[in-house]
């Protein structure tokens, strides 16, 4: 037999535990837990954070300006005493500061480019896939027309008409890079569209706009995030490619691609001018790729 005080306690405990709201663990939290177990991805994340911090604040720690020529020290190798920690280039400008300032441009192009591509691509693809029918057909044909434009000609034309400008690179890259994401998202949307929870939302009277933003986009975001991380190194490479061809940033501003181009011209006499930007770029690209791999594994529900 239970004593009255015991049952009273029991009741109190029960009513208390019923009031406690249990926090659920979302799929994102699950993914983050899996991501943390991936050493390569976590290491990459640390290195990337370090590089980002370095390009943001590093130039202020340098002993020289990025665009001031130090005439007595042209083509000198790395030297701690005169403040040129990573040497100077053919005009005597400090490589340490230049590579960090160039990194700002490269990483900005990479991240902003990927962001723009993801935003436009996701909305375009989700809309096209969700509405379907003739709208879908027209939207996809437009996409194919854009995809068939010769991209290099577009860039060269833009540069000849408007001069060399970093924003032109954004425009040019932004024009083409969202096409793939739009296709991926549209495919995902088509398979999600027939899931019962979309129908349930329709029955609940939710508008198409909210179905896309609340139900479709969050569910395709996993794949989009992975693709975006893998897109960033592509963007960086692309900017380098344009800069290497001389279509990129305007002197004295620089980027990793422009530094590589200058370094390649003098590699026989001053190898550090090539190795320093190359090292930074390769590390960044590796890290982004490992990060993308890690995210893909973490977001794959079959890996649970």
């Amino acid at each position: 037999m239970m004593s009255p005080s015991y049952s009273k306690n029991q009741q109190a405990v029960e009513s208390f535990s019923e009031q406690l709201t249990i926090e659920g663990r979302s799929l994102w939290q699950d993914a983050w837990r899996r991501f943390k177990q991936n050493r390569a991805a976590i290491t990459s994340l640390y290195i990337l954070s370090f590089i980002v911090l370095a390009v943001l604040f590093g130039p202020y720690l340098g002993a020289h300006e990025f665009d001031i020529a130090d005439w007595p020290n042209i083509h000198t190798g790395p030297n701690w005493d005169n403040g040129h920690y990573l040497g100077t280039d053919s005009l005597g400008r400090d490589m340490f500061v230049r590579v960090l300032v160039g990194g700002r441009i490269s990483i900005m192009v990479g991240i902003l480019g990927a962001l723009v591509a993801v935003l436009i691509g996701t909305l375009y693809g989700a809309t096209s896939g969700y509405i379907g029918g003739n709208t879908d057909r027209v939207m996809m044909r437009v996409l194919e027309i854009l995809a068939s434009m010769p991209f290099m000609f577009l860039v060269i034309l833009l540069v000849t008409f408007f001069g060399r400008n970093i924003f032109l690179i954004f425009v040019a890259i932004g024009c083409v890079s969202w096409l793939d994401i739009a296709r991926i998202v549209r495919g995902q949307t088509l398979s999600l569209k027939n899931k019962a929870f979309i129908e349930a939302a329709q029955v609940s009277g939710v508008s198409s706009r909210h179905i896309i933003s609340r139900h479709l986009v969050p569910n395709v975001l996993g794949i989009v995030v992975v693709y975006a991380t893998l897109l960033v190194p592509g963007m960086i490479l692309f900017e380098s490619f344009l800069s290497f061809l001389g279509l990129g940033v305007q002197e004295p501003m620089t980027s990793w691609g422009a530094l590589l181009q200058e370094g390649a011209q003098t590699m026989e006499v001053a190898i550090w001018q090539l190795l320093v930007p190359a090292g930074f770029m390769v590390t960044t690209l590796f890290c982004f790729n490992y990060l993308g791999d890690g995210l893909r594994d973490a977001l794959d529900p079959k890996q649970q």
Partner: peptide
């Protein structure tokens, strides 16, 4: 709906 889990948005 027929599919109990499929009719619930997994992200909500």
């Amino acid at each position: 709906f027929q599919d109990p889990l499929g009719s619930l948005n997994p992200r909500m």
